[in-house]
Amino acid sequence: MSNEQAIGFMDSGVGGLTVVKQALKQLPRERVIFIGDQARLPYGPRPSAQVRDFSWQMATFLMSQDIKMLVIACNTATAAALPDLRAKLDIPVIGVISPGSRAAIKASKNHRIGVIATEGTIRSGAYRNAILAKDPSATVVSQACPKFVPLVESNEYRSPVAKRVVAEGLQSFKNSGIDTLVLGCTHYPLLRPLIQNVIGPDVTLIDSGAETVNGVSFMLDYLDIATTSSKKPQADRYYTTGSADQFATIAQDWLKQPAFKATQIELGGDLV
């Protein structure tokens, strides 16, 4: 393994760019190769065995690009596939759930923590288990928000519709007493201002993706595989199984890269 190899990031769609954005900021010399499986999203409602298969296809593609570390920049895929990918791959594999859970425990004063995520992530109990394993005295209030991902993927995350959908999705947290809320899907930080507005200024929002990059940075140093070049050895690369134009529209805005380009690829199998 060479230090100049890229870090691979994978997600069900554009949400993983919220993790990449943090990586570009915190690790500007590291090269990024990203794949978003937009053709088959959302992952949230799918059975976990299917999410595992799709995750394996994405990981295999990234491995063919000669990466030195894999970041599962998707909570649903982390919940379904992290142990499987760690067992099969001989490079470090980092998920987003553990870092998000740790940060939530650290931030919470009253041990009442909310989690919003896809149906798959909530169904898996991954956040609840991770939080309670570290803080058995915590109360975890979980809520699936299935309408949030389509809002982001259709580029409507700043629209009046988004405002209404977010308000409805967070209804169950009224009077819950939480002081911390985990954004347990990497799409959700794009809705952050709306979520903060509804949930109130006294609740700390935890961006699992941003926390994950702290872990990536630590692992690069710990394993001594951080790039040694003074600048990126090659350009970052972005792939999607969906529309490259649609992907680029959101990415240009979110990453503040007007010249952003994405390449469409096929991963095969089950677009239903």
Rank of each mutant, 00 (worst) to 15 (best):
L41P: 01
P42N: 04
P42G: 01
R46C: 02
S48Y: 07
S48K: 09
A49C: 05
Q50R: 06
V51S: 04
R52C: 11
F54H: 07
F54D: 06
F54L: 15
F54R: 08
S55Q: 03
W56F: 14
M58H: 08
A59R: 05
T60P: 03
S64Y: 02
S64G: 06
Q65C: 14
K68V: 13
K68Y: 13
K68C: 14
K68M: 11
M69W: 01
M69E: 06
M69Q: 04
M69N: 04
L70S: 11
L70D: 12
V71D: 04
A73T: 01
N75I: 05
T76Q: 05
A77H: 12
T78N: 13
A80T: 08
A80C: 14
A81Q: 12
A81S: 15
L82K: 02
L82I: 02
L82H: 00
P83G: 09
P83H: 11
P83Y: 11
L85S: 00
L85A: 04
R86M: 03
A87Q: 14
K88F: 08
K88G: 11
K88T: 07
L89F: 13
D90L: 14
I91N: 13
I91E: 12
P92W: 08
P92M: 09
V93I: 03
I94V: 03
I94H: 00
I94R: 01
V96A: 07
I97Q: 09
I97C: 09
S98K: 14
P99I: 09
P99K: 10
P99H: 13
G100F: 10
S101G: 13
A103W: 06
A103G: 13
A104C: 11
